[in-house]
Amino acid sequence: MSRRKAREMAVQALFQLDFNAGVSNDEALNSVFSEREDVNENTRLYAKSLVEGTYSNLAVIDDYISELSKEWKIERMAGVDRNIARMAIYEMKYSQERLQPGVAINEAVELAKTFGTEESSRFINGILGSIVKNKGLA
């Protein structure tokens, strides 16, 4: 299983859910899965768990982000950045297999380099670092 691939697919599905009202988790995931042929079942299951877990904790995760990003309302953040941060917080705080903050932040920064803008990786690193520091997720 490739967790990196699972995270990539999960971010793509979360992005779809964020911008397409009425789309279900399964529809968003199936859309992403249909673009990839070589993904094994464990990777798909991990992507699904990331999407479902992030989405089910969305309100509290968004509160974490909003508290520490006073200059940016969450709805004004770039959609990719917002969803990468959401998923990283889910993995650090709510996932059954909680990731160490350093690992979660590193994975999120790498996703930001792949899917975001030039500034995305710095933004993700900063916001997640602040959350870890100020919310005691370490």
Rank of each mutant, 00 (worst) to 15 (best):
83 N>Y: 02
85 A>K: 01
44 R>G: 00
127 I>V: 15
57 N>W: 07
18 D>L: 12
101 P>A: 09
47 A>W: 01
26 D>T: 14
119 E>H: 12
100 Q>P: 06
89 I>L: 14
103 V>W: 02
56 S>T: 10
62 D>R: 09
62 D>W: 00
88 A>Q: 07
132 V>A: 12
22 G>M: 06
7 R>L: 11
75 E>T: 10
63 D>V: 02
83 N>A: 00
121 S>F: 13
47 A>I: 00
51 V>S: 08
109 V>M: 10
82 R>P: 00
46 Y>Q: 10
54 T>A: 12
80 V>A: 07
131 I>G: 03
113 K>E: 13
117 T>C: 03
14 L>K: 08
107 E>M: 08
52 E>S: 12
27 E>I: 12
79 G>Y: 02
45 L>R: 15
44 R>M: 11
38 D>F: 05
134 N>H: 14
92 M>Q: 07
103 V>A: 10
78 A>I: 08
72 W>Q: 13
115 F>R: 03
89 I>Y: 06
43 T>M: 04
104 A>I: 05
128 L>W: 04
54 T>S: 15
125 N>S: 13
78 A>V: 05
117 T>V: 05
16 Q>Y: 12
132 V>C: 10
33 F>T: 04
132 V>G: 06
60 V>P: 00
131 I>C: 02
135 K>R: 14
47 A>R: 02
115 F>D: 06
